[in-house]
Design a binder for these strands. Structure first.
Length: 931
DNA sequence: GAGTTTGAAACT
DNA sequence: CAGTTTCAAACTC
């Protein structure tokens, strides 16, 4: 049946030419055809996954010990939700200061409160309700106008030293005229709330159930909600309700206890009570001095994704500090995605005490010498001592890297809480899904010092979406700006923790790599597991997107660049450069590789490539480099980077083989053979999914019924012929096998059609509004003449020419039918455009023709006219027409014989349709002729 | 490692 | 917007 060689067939976009699926599976044909056609016409852009919803804003603090569910919950947090999630107990006391910024007004709130502007602080095992084990003395400032929540440090808050995690300190939320609504019924299965009015000195009463309470799994969850109708003195905006919700797990619960998600407002949190209780003390100290810690900085840089905020912990071994109170003012402007994290003292650790150990996170403020910027350094350290709530079972040992996520929906802070002292002991192991979730959120943001930059600050108007300058709470000049780009300081002396190191691959292997965002097109695992290439920039000062470091939002580190300005020492220049880039392209720092439609695993380049000579099969091509196939938005010429491309397949196989070899060698060296098998196991489904997986939806009810009928028919036959039972079974089984084969065959064809549809979309560029009609003609095997149906410019003419390269595959597929393909471009090509066309034709000559069948004669006509009517007439009269005919047998294209395109008409609307063989073929290029 | 090729970014 | 130049990485020898 095949009249075309398999190779040619493989080249073809068989959606048109391959009628096998249609003919062999008549039942499926109409659907398949319809699908192709409709799909072709429906050229809706594929939404990119690149962009995380900007609208969603949530802030979540997830303790390092957060379980998988926690992280998952974080990812589900939605709009304007502030959630502080801890997998362990978090003694928190919230005390309002006299700061006018803080106004807490309680209103009734239920866990189901629906708020778009709701700020929800969710914490499990928070001591706020569990007896006031700790104190959170951070003043809350919630600015409805800006949708900001500001945890401001108050001068002379002394909760600090006293805030022993274990010590049941009164939890105080003071705010004049403010009410605190909390909920917590220890005996109730369902979350219950308790309203606590907070007067001038309102205290938050311990809410936790008595120790004698035997709580079930559900009972273990206790929800405390604090709804704060905030009144900021400076804001006159409509009051926005904020909810502080706390999911409380009673200590001593059964380790099997699992806590279902608690939805508060829009925050979904989950707590696993089985986790060891842990205490996070968030207090603030009165020390406002800025400690200068040269060399210990957190890079604050624009990230690729505007949707998240990432604070990278520059891990360094930190001695176990006895100081348990930490000042951690956090300003979060939800509406504008402001996240400000400040640390008043360099030595104040954010301590998270677990039964297993104490993770101290030092948020250190750093002042770079010679720089007016203030940087924050977040250092985590683990000690073996157990502080805080000592009630839980103690024990385990290795503190694995666990991400601490501060998520504001669109703003996300991810802080890998890796115990500095144990980092190198972390055994490579599959990360939890929680970690994976975090890593999939590869688009992160860092906080960027922004305040004292008068010469630049006024120009920050065009910072990426979500970028906001956050003034310092005290009115000082220590604000920070969250910029959607991933800039992380690279400090030579500071080991770096991989930001998104939680990947499917054992990333936390102790190799301290620079925190970074995933490379474009690379998976998180790839991006994080592989060391970044040093750049070699010489002229760009590493301040242009030419520089991969800069483009990826990183500081240069261990690079080979000359005159590098991509470092802290040139922060001003760097910021200017960032702004320049963002001015030029607001999405300059966004990942270029997004995701296709929902449900599709295919990623795609956000802009598409423009490759001309590489066939999109070299790393020059950004699509190929990202290991993705070119898509409909690509403007490449001679693309071979499509799914069914044999060249691509060959390359892929070679690459796979090479990769496997490398893995094997590496594993052999490191004696980690187990890793190999693991990786091989991983790669297998990838390969199979690409080529073999059948659509599971194909076995429909009708298919099943038909199959059963077939089997029953065989059974009846056997019965009627009095076949022995064994024979009857054999016949039935055979029939079943046949049914399966047919199902598989049909499913495979359907899948092929799906793929072809994708290619069809790729070819159906925007210039072709009548693409379905063209497909229809192709399917009818008519000779046809193709004309663009929409306004053609010089540029679009180029695109049309590039289509020739794609269409040629169809032509090739129909060799026996001598399908002629005419390409007409009438009256639209200006002289310079003609030059471009010639170049494109050279491309045809060079890259495409070589693969054409020399034995066949496949004319390609390039016709021009001065108007649509003229061209139209030309096709019928073969007059007043400039056209060229290519003889494939010659495999050459003498461009000189093409003459010139004289038309300067740039815009013509043409229609297209079948013209039959209006143009005669010639074995050679016809000389240019004009009437 | 030097030189070439390539395509994105930057520039005009 | 379109064409050209610059740039650094990819590639070749």
């Amino acid at each position: 049946m095949d009249v075309v060689s398999p190779e040619l067939n493989s080249l073809l976009p068989d959606e048109i030419m391959d009628t096998e699926a249609i003919e062999d599976v008549p039942h499926t044909q109409p659907e398949a055809t319809a699908m192709v056609l409709s799909g072709a016409s429906d050229d809706t852009p594929v939404p990119m996954e690149t962009d995380t919803p900007m609208a969603s804003e949530s802030l979540g603090l997830c303790s390092g010990a957060a379980s998988t569910e926690h992280t998952r919950a974080l990812t589900t947090t939605t709009d304007s939700a502030l959630s502080i999630i801890s997998g362990s107990q978090i003694p928190i006391s919230i005390s309002s200061s006299s700061s006018p910024l803080l106004t807490l007004k309680s209103t009734l709130c239920t866990s189901t409160t629906k708020t778009t502007d709701c700020v929800t602080v969710t914490a499990t095992d928070c001591s706020v309700s569990t007896g006031g084990l700790t104190r959170l003395t951070a003043p809350f400032t919630i600015s409805p106008a800006n949708h900001q929540i500001i945890l401001n440090k108050v001068a002379s808050s002394q909760a600090t030293e006293a805030a022993k995690a274990a010590g049941p300190s009164p939890q105080v939320i003071k705010q004049d005229g403010q009410k605190l609504l909390t909920s917590g019924d220890t005996k109730s299965h369902a979350p219950q709330f308790k309203v606590v009015t907070i007067g001038g000195r309102t205290e938050l009463k311990p809410m936790l159930g008595g120790p004698g309470n035997q709580l079930t799994t559900l009972q273990a969850q206790q929800l405390k909600a604090v709804q704060i109708a905030k009144k900021t003195p400076t804001s006159s905006a409509a009051p926005i309700k904020y909810i502080i919700t706390k999911t409380i797990n009673s200590k001593g619960l059964s380790p099997q206890t699992s806590v279902p998600s608690v939805i508060t407002g829009r925050v979904l949190t989950q707590n696993s009570s089985g986790m060891p209780s842990r205490t996070i003390t968030l207090t603030e100290t009165h020390n406002t001095s800025i400690q200068s810690l040269p060399g210990k900085k957190i890079a604050i840089s624009p990230l690729k994704s505007p949707s998240k905020v990432t604070v990278v912990s520059v891990a360094s071994p930190t001695s176990n500090s006895t100081q348990k109170s930490v000042t951690l003012p956090v300003n979060v402007a939800l509406g504008q995605q402001i996240l400000t994290v400040q640390q008043s003292t360099s030595s104040s650790p954010v301590k998270m005490a677990t039964n297993q150990g104490t993770v101290q996170s030092n948020v250190q403020q750093i002042q770079v010498p010679g720089s007016r910027f203030h940087y924050v350094r977040l250092v985590t350290a683990t000690t073996a001592s157990s502080t805080g709530q000592a009630s839980g079972p103690s024990t385990s040992s290795i503190q694995t890297a666990k991400p601490m996520v501060v998520s504001t929906g669109a703003v996300r802070m991810s802080v890998p809480m890796i115990a500095a002292q144990t980092m190198k002991q972390v055994a490579p192991k599959p990360l939890t899904s929680a970690a994976q979730v975090v890593t999939t959120q590869t688009q992160q943001r860092l906080i960027m010092p922004a305040t004292p930059l008068p010469q630049i600050q006024p120009n920050f108007t065009n910072l990426p979406p979500g970028t906001v300058l956050a003034p310092a709470p005290g009115g000082g000049n220590m604000g920070y700006a969250v910029v959607p780009a991933q800039y992380v300081t690279q400090l030579q002396q500071s080991p770096f923790v991989t930001l998104a190191s939680s990947s499917g691959f054992p990333a936390a292997t102790g190799i301290q790599t620079q925190a970074r965002l995933p490379l474009n097109g690379l998976s998180t695992a790839e991006a994080t597991s592989r060391p970044r290439k040093p750049c070699n920039c010489t002229k760009s000062q590493c301040l242009k997107l030419y520089c991969d470091c800069f483009a990826n939002g990183e500081f240069c580190n261990n690079c080979n660049c000359n005159n590098c300005f991509n470092n802290l020492e040139h922060e001003t220049e760097r910021l200017k450069a960032i702004k320049t880039c963002l001015d030029r392209n607001p999405e300059a720092f966004k990942p270029k590789i997004g995701k296709g439609k929902e449900g599709e695993s295919d990623r795609r380049h956000s802009k598409g490539c423009n490759c001309k000579r590489s066939g999109c099969l070299k790393n020059y091509c950004e699509c190929y480099e990202a290991k993705i196939m070119c898509s409909s938005i690509c403007k490449c010429i001679g693309c071979k980077n499509f799914e069914e491309s044999p060249e691509r397949k060959t390359l892929m196989h070679l690459a796979d083989a090479a990769e496997v070899r490398v893995l094997q060698q590496t594993a052999a060296r490191t004696k980690l053979s187990s890793q190999i098998s693991d990786l091989l196991m991983r790669s297998t489904p990838v390969i199979s999914s690409e080529s073999g997986r059948l659509p599971y939806t194909f076995v429909t009810k009708e298919v099943l019924e038909a199959t059963c009928e077939c089997l029953m028919e065989q059974a009846k036959k056997a019965e009627q012929t009095h076949q022995p039972q064994a024979e009857a079974e054999r016949v039935i089984l055979e029939e079943f096998g046949h049914c399966l084969m047919r199902i598989i065959s049909s499913a495979g064809k359907a899948k092929r059609l799906e793929r072809r549809l994708g290619l069809l979309n790729k070819m159906g560029s925007s210039e072709l509004s009548s693409w379905p009609r063209m497909v229809e003609l192709l399917m009818s095997r008519q000779s046809f003449c193709f004309q663009a149906s929409t306004t053609i410019t010089k540029r679009s003419a180029v695109s049309i020419v590039s289509m020739v390269l794609s269409l040629r595959r169809w032509v090739l597929a129909d060799v026996p039918r001598k399908l002629s393909f005419f390409f007409a471009c009438g009256g639209v090509v200006a002289p310079d455009g003609a030059q471009k066309l010639r170049m494109k034709l050279k491309e045809i000559n060079r890259t495409a023709i070589q693969s054409w069948s020399p034995a066949q004669h496949h004319p390609v006509y390039l016709a021009t006219g001065t108007s649509a009517q003229q061209l139209d007439a030309s096709f019928s009269t073969n007059a007043s027409l400039e056209f060229f005919e290519l003889d494939l047998a010659e495999r050459s294209l003498d461009m000189k014989s093409c003459g010139s395109f004289s038309s300067t008409h740039r815009y013509h609307k043409l229609v297209w349709g079948p013209y039959g063989n209006g143009l005669r073929r010639s074995p050679i290029w016809r000389p240019y002729r004009r009437k």
